Computed example of a mutant assay.
Amino acid sequence: MKSHIYITRHGESQWNVECKVQGITDTPLTSKGIEQAHELAKKIKESGIKIDEILHSPLSRAADTAKIIAEENGLPLTLEPRLVEQNFGEYEGHEWKKYPGVFHEAKKQFACDYNGGESMLRLGQRIYNLLDELKVRSEKENKTFLLVTHGGIARMIHSYFNSETNEEFSSTNTGNCEIKEYVF
């Protein structure tokens, strides 16, 4: 029997509006982001998607999104520190419009830690280990998880299930409160 896992990115945050790179910087949801979380909670309830537990990042934009979904669907909620967004080092707060393409190119340098951040290789290790554990739990406990996380983490999760070139990897995006399903 195949087991499933769902992921979603947090609702719109203040730095999403300001077009800034936000890694471990803890930026709050906007009113639109809160509304998106409520809409996703409703979508999950109405669609009948089977979710047994929600795991979420410790950053408030993801934690607040997860809490809304959990409360509106009566689901247990677990903090999972490994779902925290990547530390983008010198790119934290980087304004996309001021330096077009610079951060996109940096994401292709898998061993680079962005001068004090976390490299893609280390991020991959952290997320792949988590997914390996969740696969075992999913099969052993017959559980389906929803991971509420961030764009960089969603990109790494996507790469766990899909073969990609560096260009495809660096271009993979997940919208705010977009839900994706993967099969182990």
Rank of each mutant, 00 (worst) to 15 (best):
K180H: 10
F88Y: 15
K97P: 04
P76N: 11
W96S: 09
K42W: 01
M1A: 15
R137P: 01
C112S: 15
G89I: 05
G93I: 04
I153S: 06
L147T: 01
P100Y: 02
Q14F: 06
S171A: 15
K143R: 12
S170R: 08
E164L: 14
H4C: 11
H158Q: 05
T78I: 08
E72P: 00
I5M: 10
E39R: 12
I54P: 02
G74A: 00
A111P: 01
K42G: 01
R137M: 12
S47T: 00
E39M: 10
E18P: 00
T30H: 08
I44M: 01
N129H: 13
G93L: 05
N166L: 14
S13G: 14
A37E: 11
F161M: 08
I179L: 03
H38C: 07
D113R: 06
P100L: 07
T65H: 08
F161P: 05
F145L: 05
N166Y: 09
L59C: 10
P100T: 05
T165G: 03
S171G: 11
I44N: 00
L55S: 07
L55M: 13
S119D: 10
R61K: 11
Q125P: 02
I157V: 15
K45E: 03
L79E: 15
Y160K: 09
K45Y: 04
F88L: 05
A62D: 14
L147P: 02
A63N: 11
D52T: 03
R137H: 10
I34K: 15
